[in-house]
């Protein structure tokens, strides 16, 4: 049972409020800088540019597909880490977080070495099925999923550890198999955690740059996502880059807040 913590102290202590406000300022100021510098008059015409729309569509599509991949593979992985005792679990948990510390560009090179045309698996994929991932939209999804999956796994594992295992034990006592228990008891129990993890994962995938450009390259309409378009626009047109950044920012904030309200019960 969770106790309602709000309202316990009548005043928030300054020693917490001050760093909190500074922290907020630190996060919001660059955003404000961006907003102040955006050429607002350009916005409508930029928004309807086919190349911008193509990049935006591709970004939303790939981030969503990557999140689906991460959920399909990451939730079972989180369950394994939280519920099954096995040797080397600590090592596996550390390995799961590797993409978090790996510079994304290095992640992209690593993906090329495995899934590239001459890669460990890629060479076989190419010869056996004629499938090549680099420079394709599927490649973008692979790159984004690689970088974003740890966010989902960590969030779901945390939720699983925090969940009361007695419900699962009760289900098992009543004769439910482990799969049924997972499906009917565990998953509904940690649904908010899965949703939170999926949202984080989606946001990370949407902003992905380094692994994508390295593994999937940059081709408009096929692998050029919004962050890549922003980077290239920065080369010779700062205003265009700012407008593109703003569009990406607004779309992601709108989607994230609306999903948050729907999925995650705010305490």
């Amino acid at each position: 049972m969770r106790t309602q913590r709000r309202g316990t102290g009548s005043r928030a202590p300054l020693v917490l409020v001050l760093p909190a406000a500074l922290g907020l300022l630190f996060l919001v100021l660059p955003l404000a800088g961006l907003l102040l510098r955006v050429p607002w008059t350009d916005l409508p015409s930029r928004l309807t540019e086919p190349s911008v729309l193509a990049a935006l569509r591709l970004s939303l599509l790939t981030a969503t597909a990557a999140t689906a991949v991460c959920a399909a593979l990451g939730v079972p992985l989180a369950w394994l880490l939280a519920r099954v005792e096995f040797r080397g679990r600590k090592l596996v948990r550390a390995l799961v977080t590797v993409p978090l510390v790996l510079p994304p560009v290095v992640g992209g090179v690593a993906l090329l070495l495995v899934f590239g045309r001459r890669g460990l698996i890629g060479e076989w994929l190419d010869r056996a099925f004629g499938i090549t991932l680099p420079f394709t939209t599927a490649g973008v999804i692979v790159a984004e999923a690689f970088v974003a999956m740890p966010f989902l796994v960590i969030a779901v594992e945390g939720a699983l550890r925090g969940a009361d295992t007695r419900y699962e034990e009760a289900a098992a006592t009543l004769g439910a198999s482990r799969w049924t228990t997972f499906r009917r008891v565990t998953l509904p129990l940690v649904a908010p955690g899965v949703a939170a993890g999926a949202v984080l994962c989606w946001a990370r995938a949407l902003g992905e740059f380094g692994a994508t450009i390295t593994f999937a390259g940059n081709f408009p309409g096929r692998t050029q996502t919004m962050p890549l378009a922003v980077y290239l626009a920065l080369e010779n047109d700062l205003d265009a880059a700012l407008v593109l950044s703003l569009i990406l920012l607004v779309v992601s904030v709108v989607i994230l807040t609306s999903l948050r309200d729907r999925w995650i019960a705010t305490p």
Partner: peptide, 11 residues
Amino acid sequence: TPVTQETDVKA
């Protein structure tokens, strides 16, 4: 038509 348009020559 290239398969990719890289952001710099080293890439």
